[in-house]
Amino acid sequence: MKYVALLLSIILISACSGSFKKEQPVCTGNALIGGQESAVNIYNVRKVAGQTQYKAGYPFNWQWVGKNNFIRTTCT
């Protein structure tokens, strides 16, 4: 029974290993966080109701945040 459970675990792990696609940043930005300038990777850009939003990585935890959170960006 232990071997069957081990085999199933290995199959499940190997099946999921290729399903996560690593996103590459489309541009970068600098944000002022706690008085310190910090470089942030930006993974997507969208406009909502005339406002530009960036899907920002750490320290914004891959959430959509407004353009006004950044001092400057390389996004076009």
Results as ranks from 00 to 15, higher is better:
residue 29 G to Y: 07
residue 75 C to W: 00
residue 62 W to T: 03
residue 53 Q to F: 11
residue 68 N to P: 02
residue 17 S to R: 12
residue 18 G to L: 08
residue 17 S to N: 06
residue 76 T to Y: 02
residue 18 G to P: 04
residue 28 T to A: 13
residue 12 L to H: 05
residue 15 A to P: 08
residue 56 A to M: 00
residue 44 N to Y: 02
residue 45 V to H: 02
residue 9 S to E: 09
residue 22 K to S: 08
residue 18 G to I: 04
residue 55 K to E: 10
residue 45 V to N: 01
residue 34 G to Y: 09
residue 61 N to W: 12
residue 4 V to A: 14
residue 44 N to L: 07
residue 61 N to L: 12
residue 43 Y to T: 03
residue 63 Q to M: 02
residue 73 T to W: 00
residue 63 Q to R: 14
residue 23 E to I: 00
residue 60 F to R: 04
residue 66 G to Y: 11
residue 58 Y to V: 09
residue 61 N to F: 10
residue 58 Y to Q: 12
residue 13 I to P: 00
residue 42 I to W: 01
residue 37 E to H: 01
residue 27 C to D: 05
residue 59 P to E: 04
residue 76 T to S: 13
residue 22 K to F: 14
residue 35 G to E: 08
residue 57 G to H: 04
residue 3 Y to N: 07
residue 64 W to Q: 10
residue 1 M to D: 11
residue 44 N to G: 08
residue 28 T to N: 13
residue 50 G to L: 05
residue 38 S to I: 14
residue 39 A to N: 13
residue 42 I to A: 08
residue 15 A to G: 12
residue 46 R to E: 13
residue 11 I to A: 10
residue 15 A to W: 11
residue 71 I to D: 10
residue 74 T to I: 03
residue 50 G to H: 10
residue 38 S to V: 14
residue 45 V to E: 08
residue 50 G to A: 03
residue 35 G to A: 11
residue 10 I to M: 02
residue 9 S to C: 12
residue 39 A to E: 15
residue 29 G to V: 09
residue 21 K to F: 01
residue 59 P to N: 07
residue 67 K to P: 00
residue 16 C to I: 10
residue 38 S to R: 14
residue 75 C to D: 00
residue 10 I to P: 03
residue 56 A to L: 04
residue 47 K to T: 15
residue 44 N to E: 15
residue 8 L to C: 09
residue 47 K to H: 12
residue 53 Q to G: 02
residue 21 K to R: 07
residue 24 Q to C: 09
residue 75 C to V: 01
residue 24 Q to V: 04
residue 11 I to L: 14
residue 21 K to N: 04
residue 71 I to G: 06
residue 10 I to F: 06
residue 25 P to K: 04
residue 26 V to Y: 09
residue 43 Y to I: 05
residue 24 Q to W: 04
residue 51 Q to T: 06
residue 24 Q to K: 15
residue 48 V to E: 12
residue 41 N to T: 01
residue 16 C to Y: 13
residue 39 A to I: 07
residue 41 N to Y: 06
residue 28 T to Q: 14
residue 72 R to T: 08
residue 25 P to L: 06
residue 48 V to L: 10
residue 4 V to G: 07
residue 5 A to H: 14
residue 26 V to G: 07
residue 34 G to K: 08
residue 30 N to V: 15
residue 59 P to K: 14
residue 20 F to K: 06
residue 12 L to E: 03
residue 73 T to N: 09
residue 49 A to P: 02
residue 20 F to G: 01
residue 10 I to S: 09
residue 19 S to N: 13
residue 4 V to M: 03
residue 64 W to V: 10
residue 34 G to P: 03
residue 11 I to C: 05
residue 65 V to S: 07
residue 40 V to I: 12
residue 69 N to V: 02
residue 8 L to F: 11
residue 12 L to T: 07
residue 21 K to T: 00
residue 21 K to E: 08
residue 70 F to L: 01
residue 22 K to G: 06
residue 12 L to Q: 00
residue 26 V to D: 08
